[in-house]
C-alpha cells in the first residue's frame, strides 16, 4: 500500500502558489462577470439568471477542480459524487416539474 503512496507526484510549493494565483484571478473574473451580467439593461430576468448561473458554475468548477483536486480524484469519489448529482438533479427537477404541472386554474 505504501508503494502507491510513493507513486504520487512530488508536491512543489511554488507550482501550487502559481495555481492558487490563477484560481484567484479566475474567481475575480467570474465574480465581476456575474455582477456585470446582473446589471445588463436590455435582458429579462430569465436570460440574466441563466447567464449568472452559467458563470457561477464555471467559478464552482474552478474551485472544485483545482482547490478540491476533483480533476484528479479517484474513481471511487467520482462514482459517489455522480450518484449525489443525479439525486440532487432529481430532487430539484422533479419538484419543480411537479409544481408546474398543475391542473388548469389551480395555484400552489
Amino acid at each position: 500500500m505504501s508503494q502507491l503512496h510513493q507513486v504520487e507526484h512530488p508536491v512543489e510549493f511554488k507550482s501550487y502558489l502559481r495555481r492558487c494565483l490563477y484560481v484567484f484571478i479566475a474567481v475575480l473574473c467570474t465574480t465581476s462577470l456575474m455582477i456585470g451580467a446582473s446589471f445588463l439593461p436590455n435582458y429579462g430576468w430569465t436570460a440574466k439568471v441563466a447567464m449568472i448561473l452559467a458563470v457561477a458554475c464555471v467559478n464552482a468548477f474552478v474551485v472544485a477542480g483545482y482547490l478540491m483536486h476533483l480533476l484528479s480524484e479517484k474513481k471511487m469519489i467520482y462514482t459517489l459524487l455522480g450518484f449525489t448529482i443525479f439525486f440532487f438533479a432529481g430532487l430539484m427537477g422533479l419538484t419543480i416539474w411537479a409544481m408546474h404541472d398543475m391542473p388548469a386554474g389551480s395555484s400552489h
Binding site: L94, H100, D101
Partner: peptide
C-alpha cells in the same frame, strides 16, 4: 427509491403528466 416519492401526493392536485411519471 429516490424518484417515486410523489406517489404519496396524488391527491394534492398534481397534474396528469407528473402523476403518470
Amino acid at each position: 427509491s429516490f424518484i417515486v416519492w410523489a406517489h404519496h401526493m396524488y391527491l394534492t392536485g398534481m397534474g396528469t403528466k407528473i402523476s403518470t411519471f
